[in-house]
């Protein structure tokens, strides 16, 4: 029982981690707290669904198309909206991200309606059992994807020239301009990457659950993950995802019987409250310090 709950927690946690990564990327590059991440997850899953079922081509053609469209969506959002919001109050920016969220949910309803869709099997079959417990392949795949993406991100930011430029912009935009780096382009790119990661998370979730409008609710569930890990820490997002995922799944098993059904969904918010009281910058977040 414990092991099963633990594995389920790690699997759900790795999806949380993926989605949290997207939020952290955007926050690092442009200090925008993106409340529309959940809606991006949802629309990404719908886009992938539409491309995979709509285009009669093998997956190695359709999946890159879906990924490309997601990246394009990110660039469009940045170019049309956030490019004009530099130096605007934080609260206004947050409202705009909520607005985007409503816009995406509304458009999805208009295009696909409110039905449940079952997502086509796009992940290769894989069976795995641990100590006699069978583990669903979707869980394994989401774990593998989040680990691969985490490693790719780490290498990208450490060794690639573009990664270095993105870190420079995230660190100090004025200094970046004087070093010949265009902040707008880098922020655009971080929106693109963030949308791609959201789409991958969305496909995982749609494989675990069903494809419907409810997917965007993940944005709120992931928020405690980002706060726990620290808004600007990639490793924090990943560890935060696992911690919240495991705690949620353990509490569902052990406290669910005592307190009724959905205790696992409450637990993450209880954790959020405690973190905000004890460690407001998260486990790995940067504390703003000013040195004279």
């Amino acid at each position: 029982m414990f092991i099963q709950a633990l594995i389920a927690g790690i699997a759900v946690g790795s999806v949380y981690a993926l989605i949290a990564l997207g939020m952290v990327l955007i926050y690092k590059a442009s200090s925008v707290i993106n409340f529309s991440q959940g809606a991006l997850v949802m629309i990404g899953a719908y886009i992938t669904y539409a491309v995979v079922t709509g285009i009669p081509a093998p997956l190695w053609i359709t999946i890159p198309i879906a990924i490309g469209l997601s990246a394009l969506l990110g660039v469009v959002i940045e170019r049309l909206i956030f490019r004009y919001m530099t130096g605007v109050d934080l609260i206004a920016v947050i409202m705009v991200t909520l607005g985007i969220s409503f816009l995406l949910e509304g458009s999805t309803t208009a295009i696909w309606g409110t039905l449940n869709y079952s997502f086509p099997k796009i992940l290769p079959e894989m069976s795995f059992s641990l100590g006699g417990i069978h583990i669903s392949e979707v869980y394994i795949w989401s774990f593998i994807f989040s680990m691969v993406i985490l490693i790719m991100f780490t290498l990208f930011f450490k060794y690639s020239k573009i990664g270095l430029r993105m870190r420079a912009v995230a660190d100090n935009q004025k200094a970046s301009i004087s070093l010949g780096i265009h902040p707008g382009k880098m922020i655009s790119l971080s929106w693109a990457i963030s949308c791609v990661v959201a789409t991958i998370g969305g496909v995982m979730l749609a494989n675990i659950k069903l494809l419907n409008l409810g997917l965007s609710g993940i944005g709120i569930l992931v928020f405690p993950v980002v706060i726990l890990g620290g808004l600007d820490s990639i490793i924090g997002a990943v560890l935060g995802g696992f911690i919240i995922g495991i705690l949620g799944s353990l509490s569902a098993v052990y406290a669910g019987g005592l307190m009724g059904g959905a205790v696992d969904q409450v637990v993450s918010f209880v954790i959020l409250l405690i973190i905000l009281l004890v460690k407001p910058y998260g486990l790995f977040g940067t504390k703003e310090t000013l040195r004279l």
């Binding site: 270095l164 660190d171 100090n172 200094a175 301009i177 004087s178 070093l179 010949g180 780096i181 940067t286």
Partner: peptide, 30 residues
């Protein structure tokens, strides 16, 4: 900047979360 006019602004505009070597590398990116 690309035509060759480069400014060292007042107030030591570091990329403070990057290492010393990474700061120097960012300079060479153009």
């Amino acid at each position: 900047v690309k035509s060759g006019i480069c400014l060292v602004a007042e107030g030591r505009q570091l990329l403070k979360t990057l290492t010393v070597e990474e700061n120097l590398k960012v300079g060479s990116l153009i």
